[in-house]
Design a protein around this nucleic acid. Structure first.
Lengths: 155, 155
DNA sequence: ATTGTTGCAAAGTTTTTGCAGAAAG
DNA sequence: CTTTCTGCAAAAACTTTGCAACAAT
């Protein structure tokens, strides 16, 4: 995963201005390996910058995503961000439902999958969700869709 | 995939009233195997029901999803719906980027994946995107993220 | 008749845009 | 000093809710 310095350097190289706010953003993502929603980021940043506006957070997240230092992933409960993986080879992720940290999976299922009826494969998504060793739960507590399905909690 | 009749029967059994609008919805999903956004559904329904309101479409989609006749999936460009699969055993999907139709994959990668560091697996997602035999494209036309990434088309 | 469904209006979310002042390089 | 960034305000896009009229059973 990209470090704080790598994030700042990449932004700087692209001609982006390194504001204090962006340094803090870089540090947040450089030191926190889990996924964060725009709101998570906003809440965190607000502690340091009282007059912070939501739209600046959005703009910076988008800029950083377009620049490639952040990865943007859509989950059932919304868009989330984390620092880009620095691993250069193709891999997938195990994602902790509790802390949102990711662990690499180097096995890729796409070649094991026999495409039916001349299906022309373009891309694929493979993600495993669960609890990492720091967030273990007893089986009885586990709701398979707790963090994965938006519709839950309603009804 | 559930047929129009199966959808209507399931709704009827649950005590839902079978209105003309819901019959049309059932037919739409029973006959169309691809994913549809709420807006797609609304646009389709508007052709037949001029005074249709968006919220009724939303309500019906949610009711049908909660009832289990529709599957709701979050894509990068938003929530989409299709009739539930009638296959009872676990499977994944190949999804056409053009017509959004799905084809079953019976191979499941989750057991091939060695969970690192005592990761307690709860659920997983595996989807293959590409073009089905009816929507073949020459390789040069293919943009791997065209339909899979919201951020594209911007910049 | 009873109970669920619809359209309307309105509000809640999340994300985006224009603009003028402020700050980085 | 030039160009980019920020906060503000406002809007756009998407989704949900309350309510009274209406329709299915």
């Amino acid at each position: 995963m990209l470090s704080t310095e790598q994030i700042i350097d990449a932004m700087s190289e692209q001609g982006l201005r390194i504001t204090d706010q962006r340094k803090t953003l870089a540090r947040l993502f450089g030191e926190h390996s889990g996924y964060l929603s725009a709101k998570d980021v906003y809440d965190f940043m607000c502690k340091k910058y009282s007059g912070l506006s939501f739209d600046t957070v959005y703009r910076n997240l988008r800029v950083m995503q377009e620049l490639g230092v952040l990865e943007q992933v859509v989950f059932e409960d919304g868009m989330k961000f984390k620092a880009s993986c620095s691993e250069e080879h193709h891999h997938h992720h195990m994602i902790c439902l509790q802390c949102q940290k990711t662990y690499p999976i180097h096995f890729c299922p796409v070649n094991f999958t026999d495409a039916p009826e001349q299906f022309q494969v373009v891309t694929h998504k493979f993600e495993v969700f669960g609890y990492c060793k720091d967030c273990q739960r007893s089986t009885s507590d586990v709701d398979p869709h707790k963090a994965a399905t938006k519709a839950d909690g309603r009804r």
